[in-house]
Design a protein around this nucleic acid. Structure first.
Lengths: 220, 220
DNA sequence: TATTATTTTTAGATTAACCTAAAATCGAAA
DNA sequence: TTTCGATTTTAGGTTAATCTAAAAATAATA
């Protein structure tokens, strides 16, 4: 069953909002995410239900089907492979790629994606550190390491903190090292184990070993 | 002024059918090329006229405007750059690329095309030997050589014949060396100047010096 | 030149994706 | 448990791109 571009986009949004089918998503949430009106979402949910990529009971809610998950993961796979291409081959900055990848992900050609994957050397993660599903939709969850355990020149994305006290989060926010920030270890001071970190490819900051030990990073 | 995907496709067809604005094109011709009905074409011509990419007088005919030419050449540029990418980087065969390039040419990002061009080393011709317009829409017409003057291992595309007698064309057709065929010189016999030619990457054939002298090739 | 044949356009429908406004449903609080 | 407010759906309309059938304009031919 083939999906239109709009249907693919809705399905992807539903997949993300529901965290892969775990959480429930509301019509309003989808409308907000897609920047459309709830009425348009209702319309689309009916269509997606007819195509059996979701199971939809009106007023009640929805559930992604197995077929729907496969479709969504295919789209995500394409999106992330194109992001790798844009950053690694065409020298896009990692924050310039999304809009273009959003268009490229809808190009329809099995051969193209196969060849692109091979050309990029079967990458497992995109430039934001998010995992790239394989052709069967399997994703490899990336192991997390403490920032203080990373070596010089290694980079990744902040995905969680161990100490989630308000004070600590406020500190992180202040220095710009929020969850999701992309970081790189520029230097480590042997004497006290403190680190020099590059955040989002622009700001550098210094951080004690203790602080770094509370930050979990997905390496890439 | 932005054009929709459909409008871009119509404009490209008109540009090609009119040979860059030289010949006149009929509604029926466009319908045949686009695999739609003449009624749909009339509709679209009205729209393209409103957007001033063609000058359209109903029942009379149309003329591409300068703006229209720029738009068409931009689309052609994107199409051919993607073809080069698919063949040179992703190892597509030169006859597998068209369908995918047809989709990729509508991706909207100035930066993307700029970077792609640079990544491919500013190619001047696509895998079919057709010239790639530069960012200003200028095309470099490729010089033509007689097939018998080409060296071993050189390749190109048959673009014209000097002797266009029916007998000669029938002969070409018989051996599969039609206008547009992609050829490569595999060997040249010093004794009589005859050539061994690879046609369309599959068929090899032998050809006398006289026959080859009547075939004009765009090298690539 | 008058008639016929072809080409082109208009008229009226359809489908996908959106919208606004109004109705229906659900659930939370009085 | 009834009512009120938020959420969700339906009803009806719009735009882009297509279609078929019919009308209009042009071109070809007797």
């Amino acid at each position: 069953m083939d999906l239109t571009t709009a249907e693919e986009n809705y399905l992807k949004a539903i997949y993300h909002l529901s965290d892969g089918g775990k959480k429930s998503v509301s019509t309003n949430d989808i409308a907000a995410e897609m920047k459309t009106k709830p009425a348009s979402v209702s319309d689309m949910l009916r269509k997606l239900g007819e195509k059996e990529v979701i199971e939809y009971r009106k007023y009640y809610g929805l559930q992604i089907t197995e077929s729907g998950k496969r479709h969504a993961l295919q789209t995500i796979r394409k999106h992330r492979l194109w992001e790798v291409f844009l950053v690694e081959k065409l020298n896009f900055a990692w924050d310039e790629v999304h809009e273009v990848a959003e268009q490229l992900e809808h190009i329809n050609s099995g051969l193209l994606i196969q060849r692109l994957d091979s050309y990029l050397n079967y990458p497992k993660f995109d430039p934001h550190g998010d995992p790239i599903p394989d052709e069967f939709g399997d994703v490899r969850a990336r192991p997390r390491v403490q920032l203080n355990e990373m070596d010089i020149d290694q980079s990744g994305q902040i995905v969680a903190v161990k100490d989630s006290s308000a004070a600590f989060l406020r500190y992180l926010d202040k220095v710009g090292a929020y969850i999701g920030a992309r970081i790189k270890v520029l230097d480590k001071v042997e004497f006290d184990g403190s680190l020099e970190i590059l955040v989002d490819q622009k700001k550098t900051l210094f951080m004690s070993k203790d602080v770094a030990g509370n930050i979990l990073v997905q390496q890439s």
